[in-house]
Amino acid sequence: MGDYQLGEFEEIVLLTVAVLYNEAYGVSIKQEIEEKLERKVSTGALQTALRRMENKGYLNTRWGEATSIRGGKRKKYFMVTPFGKKALDHAQESRQKLWSAIPKIAFDFGKQ
Protein backbone atom coordinates (compact mmCIF):
# COMPACT_ATOMS: atom_id res chain seq x y z
CA MET A 1 0.00 0.00 0.00
CA GLY A 2 1.31 3.35 -1.05
CA ASP A 3 1.00 6.47 0.92
CA TYR A 4 -2.13 8.26 -0.16
CA GLN A 5 -2.08 11.73 1.22
CA LEU A 6 -5.29 13.54 0.65
CA GLY A 7 -6.32 16.74 2.39
CA GLU A 8 -9.93 17.37 3.16
CA PHE A 9 -10.33 20.00 0.42
CA GLU A 10 -8.37 17.85 -1.99
CA GLU A 11 -10.72 14.96 -1.30
CA ILE A 12 -13.72 17.14 -2.07
CA VAL A 13 -12.15 18.32 -5.32
CA LEU A 14 -11.19 14.81 -6.32
CA LEU A 15 -14.69 13.53 -5.61
CA THR A 16 -16.22 16.41 -7.53
CA VAL A 17 -13.99 15.70 -10.52
CA ALA A 18 -15.30 12.11 -10.36
CA VAL A 19 -18.89 13.35 -10.04
CA LEU A 20 -18.57 15.57 -13.11
CA TYR A 21 -16.83 12.80 -15.00
CA ASN A 22 -16.07 14.05 -18.51
CA GLU A 23 -17.10 17.59 -17.77
CA ALA A 24 -14.70 18.49 -14.99
CA TYR A 25 -12.79 21.67 -15.66
CA GLY A 26 -11.98 24.73 -13.49
CA VAL A 27 -15.27 26.57 -13.64
CA SER A 28 -17.55 23.51 -13.54
CA ILE A 29 -15.72 22.02 -10.56
CA LYS A 30 -15.92 25.30 -8.75
CA GLN A 31 -19.63 25.70 -9.41
CA GLU A 32 -20.33 22.12 -8.43
CA ILE A 33 -18.58 22.47 -5.10
CA GLU A 34 -20.23 25.80 -4.42
CA GLU A 35 -23.67 24.40 -5.20
CA LYS A 36 -23.44 21.02 -3.51
CA LEU A 37 -21.44 21.94 -0.49
CA GLU A 38 -22.51 25.54 -0.15
CA ARG A 39 -19.02 26.85 0.38
CA LYS A 40 -17.09 29.56 -1.44
CA VAL A 41 -14.13 28.41 -3.46
CA SER A 42 -11.51 30.73 -4.88
CA THR A 43 -9.91 29.96 -8.21
CA GLY A 44 -6.56 30.03 -6.48
CA ALA A 45 -7.43 27.38 -3.88
CA LEU A 46 -9.06 25.17 -6.46
CA GLN A 47 -6.23 25.37 -8.96
CA THR A 48 -3.63 24.74 -6.28
CA ALA A 49 -5.44 21.60 -5.22
CA LEU A 50 -5.94 20.43 -8.79
CA ARG A 51 -2.34 20.90 -9.81
CA ARG A 52 -1.02 19.32 -6.66
CA MET A 53 -3.10 16.23 -7.26
CA GLU A 54 -2.09 16.24 -10.89
CA ASN A 55 1.54 16.17 -9.77
CA LYS A 56 0.80 13.35 -7.35
CA GLY A 57 -0.77 11.37 -10.17
CA TYR A 58 -4.36 11.38 -8.88
CA LEU A 59 -5.54 13.38 -11.85
CA ASN A 60 -5.06 13.35 -15.58
CA THR A 61 -5.68 16.29 -17.80
CA ARG A 62 -6.62 16.88 -21.39
CA TRP A 63 -7.19 20.05 -23.35
CA GLY A 64 -10.75 20.83 -24.24
CA GLU A 65 -12.46 23.28 -26.53
CA ALA A 66 -12.03 27.05 -26.58
CA THR A 67 -15.11 29.23 -26.38
CA SER A 68 -15.71 32.86 -26.88
CA ILE A 69 -16.73 33.53 -23.32
CA ARG A 70 -13.38 32.10 -22.30
CA GLY A 71 -11.69 34.70 -24.42
CA GLY A 72 -10.61 32.04 -26.83
CA LYS A 73 -8.82 30.06 -24.16
CA ARG A 74 -9.11 26.28 -24.07
CA LYS A 75 -10.57 24.43 -21.13
CA LYS A 76 -8.49 21.94 -19.31
CA TYR A 77 -10.46 18.87 -18.29
CA PHE A 78 -9.47 16.80 -15.29
CA MET A 79 -10.07 13.07 -14.89
CA VAL A 80 -9.47 10.81 -11.93
CA THR A 81 -6.74 8.24 -12.56
CA PRO A 82 -6.82 4.71 -11.17
CA PHE A 83 -4.25 5.85 -8.69
CA GLY A 84 -6.56 8.71 -7.72
CA LYS A 85 -9.33 6.21 -7.28
CA LYS A 86 -7.14 4.22 -4.91
CA ALA A 87 -6.47 7.34 -2.93
CA LEU A 88 -10.20 7.95 -2.65
CA ASP A 89 -10.77 4.35 -1.62
CA HIS A 90 -8.04 4.63 0.91
CA ALA A 91 -9.53 7.76 2.38
CA GLN A 92 -12.95 6.18 2.53
CA GLU A 93 -11.65 2.96 4.05
CA SER A 94 -9.71 4.79 6.70
CA ARG A 95 -12.79 6.68 7.66
CA GLN A 96 -14.91 3.57 7.54
CA LYS A 97 -12.46 1.86 9.88
CA LEU A 98 -12.72 4.68 12.27
CA TRP A 99 -16.48 4.83 11.99
CA SER A 100 -16.85 1.18 12.68
CA ALA A 101 -14.52 1.38 15.62
CA ILE A 102 -16.70 3.89 17.35
CA PRO A 103 -18.57 2.19 20.24
CA LYS A 104 -22.28 2.70 19.97
CA ILE A 105 -22.46 4.35 23.27
CA ALA A 106 -20.25 7.17 22.12
CA PHE A 107 -23.00 8.63 19.98
CA ASP A 108 -25.86 7.60 22.20
CA PHE A 109 -26.33 11.12 23.53
CA GLY A 110 -29.83 10.47 24.91
CA LYS A 111 -28.68 8.14 27.67
CA GLN A 112 -25.90 10.13 29.18
Binding site: G26, V27, R74
Partner: peptide, 12 residues
Protein backbone atom coordinates in the same frame (compact mmCIF):
# COMPACT_ATOMS: atom_id res chain seq x y z
CA UNK B 1 -1.15 26.73 -16.42
CA UNK B 2 -1.87 30.14 -17.79
CA UNK B 3 -4.19 29.33 -20.66
CA UNK B 4 -6.89 27.40 -18.88
CA UNK B 5 -6.73 29.44 -15.70
CA UNK B 6 -7.11 32.71 -17.55
CA UNK B 7 -9.87 31.08 -19.55
CA UNK B 8 -11.56 29.99 -16.35
CA UNK B 9 -11.34 33.52 -15.04
CA UNK B 10 -12.90 35.09 -18.07
CA UNK B 11 -15.61 32.43 -18.11
CA UNK B 12 -16.38 33.11 -14.48
Amino acid sequence: YYEDISGDLSEQ
